[in-house]
């Protein structure tokens, strides 16, 4: 039986959700984080492509909540709950947060990957969502895909190919 799978794309500083047989993906994560939340019982999956650690530094008029770890994670959780997911069942996975360029002088901007990772973990703890898998750090880019029917996260990189978690 061939089942039609819908693929939902999540852009940079964007978030979205998919249900049951759908796949949700985001491409070219560098220092950004691809954070997924999943309710295994309802098979609802959500993904956020987080770019910056905290909205405190925002200077934009209209805040794009999907861009910052501290605003994107609660927003993603709300979206899942709206679809009927139960916060007590939701589990998180994340990938990205690498440091693509290693400089001698490592200013704050250059450490943005690790800071994004820290900030996401902090927010997950605050929201009482367990982080069950992560593939973060390193100095390479990642493309990730979450299959809503299984909850498996596929991570592809140029050097190491595809891995599942």
């Amino acid at each position: 039986m061939i089942e039609e799978q819908s693929i939902v794309k999540v852009g940079m500083a964007d978030l979205n959700v998919v249900m049951r047989s759908g796949i949700i993906r985001t491409v070219g994560l560098g220092s950004c984080i691809g954070l997924t939340m999943y309710d295994p019982q309802l098979k609802v999956a959500g993904m956020a492509h987080v770019m910056l650690p905290s909205s405190d530094i925002a200077r934009e008029g209209q805040l794009n909540i999907a861009k910052y770890a501290d605003t994107a994670l609660p927003a993603l959780l709300d979206k899942l709950v709206e679809l009927g997911a139960s916060p007590s069942r939701i589990v998180a996975k994340m990938a990205g947060g690498s440091q693509m360029f290693a400089f001698a002088g490592t200013g704050d901007t250059m450490r943005i990957g690790p800071r994004n990772v820290e900030s996401c973990k902090l927010k997950l703890a605050e929201l009482h969502i367990p982080l069950i898998a992560e593939d973060t750090g390193g100095n390479y880019g990642r493309t990730i895909e979450l299959d809503a029917s299984t909850g498996i996260l596929y991570i592809r990189s140029v050097q190491t190919g595809v891995k599942e978690m």
Binding site: M12, G28, L29, G30, C32, M100, F101, I112
Partner: peptide, 11 residues
């Protein structure tokens, strides 16, 4: 760096 353009340019 030699990698995906999205990952590089986001810097």
């Amino acid at each position: 760096a030699m990698d995906m353009a999205g990952a590089i340019l986001s810097y």
